[in-house]
Simulated assay, not measured.
Amino acid sequence: MSDSLSATTVMIEGADGDDIEAYLATPDSRENRGGVVVIHHMPGYDRGSKEIVRRFATIGYDAICPNLYWRDAPGASPDDAAAAGRANGGVPDKRLIGDVSGAVTFLRELPANNGKVGTIGYCSGGRQSVLAATAVDIDAAVDCYGAFVTGTPPEGHPLQVSNLVDRIADIRCPILGLFGNDDKYPSAEQVDEFEQLLKDNGKTYEFHRYDDAGHAFFSVERPSYRPEAAKDGWAQIETFFGARLAV
């Protein structure tokens, strides 16, 4: 593990052959390693998301975050792009699958990649990480408090998506879920439903739930940040990916 890394903006091929922007960080090492696709939260392709990409590089992975709002507002600020994305009801599932698949392919083509790639997502990205696990060739997926894997968005909610109940049987890889017990979306009952579906379909998974934590407990710049939950969550992520993305 080293803090020496390189980070840059790249263009990758996403859904329907579109070129989209992505943020890439790689360790300054020639050792073979796995890769991680970071799926950003609803607020978008922002500084916090890029910091997570760099953190994975310091842990020892090639990491990339595709800008899921690139088509909605190319070149716009994260806030403006996120607003455009919300106005469109969020990222369509088919497009998300194509963009994540393109990011996975990009990582696997890097010289040091060992062929193993996982996904991780936060908030809406948590749901999208699970969605990717149903349709993309990946080795592990992490869901950080992803809303509407089960349940449905309330009327007026900016994220206009269906749940993934009918897709759980298609999950192709182990799932790690990290949830706050005080969260509303997903609620404790919705997490229970997700867990039961994984059990019923014979999927490999592990869930960790945190008291006194709600939505976005990883977000260091928000009042929702919970240091102890985030610290343990990061430890679980490192262990989970370490067991599945190693050489």
Rank of each mutant, 00 (worst) to 15 (best):
A141R: 08
E193R: 05
A147V: 03
G180Y: 03
N181S: 12
E189L: 10
L198Q: 05
I59W: 10
D232M: 03
S219P: 01
S77T: 13
L245Y: 09
R108C: 12
A133E: 06
A103P: 00
V53W: 02
G60S: 03
S101R: 14
C173W: 04
L159A: 15
N163C: 12
V100A: 06
S6A: 12
E51P: 06
L96K: 08
P223N: 01
P111T: 09
A15L: 08
R86N: 12
G44K: 04
G202T: 05
G90K: 12
T58Q: 06
H208F: 14
D183R: 00
G60C: 06
D46F: 01
R86F: 11
L24S: 03
R127S: 05
T152D: 12
L176Y: 05
S77P: 01
A112M: 13
R172L: 07
V91Y: 06
L176H: 02
N181Y: 05
I20S: 08
L176D: 09
A147P: 12
H41C: 08
D3Q: 14
D79T: 06
G121D: 04
H40K: 10
A81F: 05
I171V: 10
Y61I: 00
L245N: 09
A140Y: 03
I12D: 04
I39W: 05
S129Q: 00
I168C: 08
E193K: 06
A7S: 14
G242A: 14
P174D: 12
Q128M: 12
T8N: 09
Y210L: 04
D79R: 10
P186G: 01
P153M: 11
R244F: 11
G202V: 10
G121Y: 03
A57H: 03
Y45K: 09
D28W: 07
T9M: 14
D28Q: 13
V247D: 09
Q128G: 06
R47I: 15
S49M: 14
A76K: 09
A216E: 04
D182Q: 15
R209K: 15
S2H: 04
A133Y: 02
E155K: 14
A7M: 07
T239R: 14
E238L: 05
T119V: 13
G202R: 04
D182H: 13
E193I: 07
L197F: 01
H208Q: 15
P153Y: 11
T8P: 01
V91L: 13
I59F: 09
A188K: 05
Q196R: 06
F56Y: 13
L198N: 05
Y45E: 07
L178N: 02
H40L: 01
G202F: 00
A216D: 14
F241H: 11
T150S: 05
G118D: 07
S101L: 10
K50I: 08
V53S: 02
V38A: 04
V161L: 00
A133S: 14
T239H: 09
A216G: 10
R95T: 14
N181T: 13
H157R: 11
G118I: 06
P27V: 00
G44Q: 01
P186M: 02
V37D: 11
Q196V: 02
R172D: 00
D143L: 06
R30A: 15
S224G: 02
G118V: 10
E31T: 13
A82Q: 01
E31Y: 02
G48N: 14
V36H: 03
I64L: 15
M11Y: 15
A188W: 00
A229D: 09
S6C: 07
M11I: 15
A7C: 10
Q190T: 00
A22V: 12
C123V: 09
E193D: 09
Y185L: 09
C173A: 11
